[in-house]
Amino acid sequence: MKRIICIVASCLLGILILGTASTSGNASSVQSTETEGTIRFMGRYEPEGTPDPPPTGIAKPPAGDRLPQTNTVHHTQWVWIGWLLVGLVATAGVKRNKKNKTN
């Protein structure tokens, strides 16, 4: 009986740990705007000089690092519900063991 309780508690703890890793979600909002209008230039266009070539050494983050994402939501209530379930199972197991020992 004790072994079954340990197995069940271990499984619930494993599910809780795996569930904690996936508590974030991403949302996206799409917004578009259409306008009508015209732009009119008066005068003559004179460039200030030749444009510089684009820089070659642009720093990019390593591919393995995860950066914060826009609209990331963390659902911590699932973590608390999981800990509550683990606590309830542990409490029920302790009460059952005490009841069996007194009989």
Rank of each mutant, 00 (worst) to 15 (best):
I58V: 15
T56E: 05
A9C: 05
T33V: 08
T70F: 08
K2R: 09
G19A: 11
T56Y: 07
E46T: 10
I39T: 12
F41I: 10
I15P: 03
L88H: 01
Y45T: 07
L13G: 05
K60I: 10
K99M: 08
N71S: 06
P47Y: 09
V86I: 15
S32I: 08
G37E: 03
S28R: 14
G93H: 06
W83Q: 02
A9S: 14
L18N: 10
R96Y: 14
T102W: 02
G64M: 11
E36V: 03
G57N: 15
P47D: 12
K101A: 09
C6H: 13
W83E: 00
P61F: 04
L84E: 00
R40L: 01
I39V: 15
T56L: 08
I58E: 02
T38G: 05
N100H: 08
R44N: 06
E34Q: 09
S29Y: 08
T72E: 14
G49C: 03
S22N: 10
T102Q: 04
P68R: 00
K2Q: 11
I4S: 08
P61Y: 03
G93L: 00
V89M: 07
V89Q: 04
S10H: 04
Q69G: 12
P55Q: 10
G25V: 12
N97T: 01
I39S: 07
M1H: 08
V79Y: 07
C6Q: 06
N26S: 12
K60N: 06
I5K: 07
A9D: 02
L85W: 03
A9W: 02
W80S: 04
I17H: 00
P55W: 06
I5T: 11
L12K: 02
M1D: 11
F41P: 02
L18D: 05
W78D: 02
F41L: 15
G82A: 13
T20N: 13
P53L: 04
R66D: 02
T70V: 10
T70Q: 09
K99C: 00
T91D: 08
L12A: 09
L16Y: 07
G49A: 13
T91P: 00
I7Y: 13
T102K: 13
A27M: 02
L88R: 06
W83M: 10
T35N: 08
K99R: 13
Y45V: 15
F41N: 04
N100G: 05
Q31Y: 06
E46F: 03
G64R: 09
R3V: 12
L67R: 03
T23P: 01
S29F: 11
S22F: 14
